[in-house]
């Protein structure tokens, strides 16, 4: 276990180094000079040269990279060109919103995907199975920004059931302000017993979370269906039935338990996709998180911000995959940590 973690830490560090090199080079290769973006469109050649010197852009590439690397490691991620604030601080204030959205969406995706997949497998070939397949294909193939707009049109504009955008309604911060503990509004409101704010935050997160959950839910449902059909036909499931176990136990406790390892693997892979998905979802729902920040940074050629978010995303992805591997070993005793 310790050896496994050490080895994984080493490979992860290599992956992160690669990602940082790639983002660094990308920022240097793109023709728009960061100095120009920094000063503004009316920059004079003399100013550009001065700023380039200040930002160290006149140094050779390897020195620039070394400086970039050591700055990143010591917590200096540079200042955002757009907001003139330290990138790390910008990320810190927006991360909780994104985390909340991601966590809720992923929990929903796994729960819905597993249940639909199991039902489809049990009812293989029926109308219900076809309906679920249609839903999961829809979830996988529908672009997030379009699904988000569609949901807004239906639930906000037409039915008027849910609030349009943002994390909270306009009055909530004044009527029943949330004491920030974790930065996840729903959690904070629950912890402090602020039920008005919880209700408001909950209603606000429904649509963006559903939009973000559609893709992974579809993937999980399809994978669950396929592996469940396979496990339900295995010898040991017949043994369980032959020994009088209830069909409910056979399906949910034995077959689903056996189907989990491959489902976990594909779910881990879709997480990377969902990370990018937050970009669109946050813009569509005006969700004040990292995705929105990154989208703005991209439009403003805000290199420090783009690089910061990219590196953070890479760290997140590496961590998630480490967790997936650990879960995998937990779920299947035949899988060793090597």
């Amino acid at each position: 276990m310790t050896r496994f973690l050490l080895r994984r830490a080493a490979t992860s560090a290599l992956v992160l180094l690669g990602v940082m090199l790639a983002t660094f080079l990308l920022a240097r290769v793109v023709p728009a000079s960061p100095a120009v973006a920094y000063i503004g469109p009316k920059a004079q050649p003399a100013d550009i040269a001065r700023v380039e010197r200040e930002l160290g852009l006149d140094q050779p590439l390897h020195i620039q990279f070394w400086r970039y690397l050591s700055d990143m490691l010591t917590g200096d991620w540079g200042d955002s060109i757009g907001t003139k604030q330290p990138v790390l601080q910008e990320i810190g204030t927006r991360l909780p919103a994104t985390l909340e959205l991601l966590i809720v969406a992923m929990v929903v995706a796994v729960a819905v995907g597993l249940v639909l997949g199991v039902i489809a497998a049990r009812r293989k070939g029926t109308k219900l199975d076809h309906l679920i397949r249609l839903l999961s294909i829809g979830g996988v193939s529908m672009p997030a920004f379009w699904l988000g707009l569609l949901l807004q049109v239906v639930f906000v504009r037409a039915l008027g059931l849910l609030p349009p955008t943002g994390r909270l309604g306009p009055e909530t911060p004044f009527v029943s302000p949330i004491t920030e503990l974790t930065g996840l509004y729903t959690v904070d409101a629950l912890l402090t017993g602020n039920m008005t704010a919880f209700g408001d935050a909950f209603l606000h997160i429904l649509l963006p979370a559903a939009t973000l959950a559609a893709y992974p839910a579809g993937v999980v449902a399809r994978m669950t269906r396929a592996t469940m059909i396979e496990t339900l036909s295995q010898d040991h499931v017949r043994t369980a039935r032959a020994y009088g176990l209830a069909e409910r136990t056979v399906t949910w406790r034995i077959a689903l338990r056996n189907a989990l390892p491959p489902v976990t693997t594909v779910f881990g892979l879709t997480l990377a996709y969902s990370l990018t998905g937050t970009f669109f979802v946050e813009v569509v729902f005006n969700w004040p998180g990292l995705g929105q920040f990154a989208a703005q940074a991209l439009l403003n050629v805000d290199y420090p911000a783009i690089m910061g978010v990219t590196v953070l995303g890479a760290v997140g992805y590496v961590l998630v995959n480490l967790v997936v591997d650990l879960i995998q070993a937990r779920l299947d005793p035949r899988v060793g940590l090597a």
């Binding site: 040991h236 034995i254 338990r257 056996n258 299947d332 035949r334």
Partner: peptide
């Protein structure tokens, strides 16, 4: 070899 649940 296959008659038992492999993960229990």
């Amino acid at each position: 070899g296959t008659a038992f649940d492999p993960v229990t």
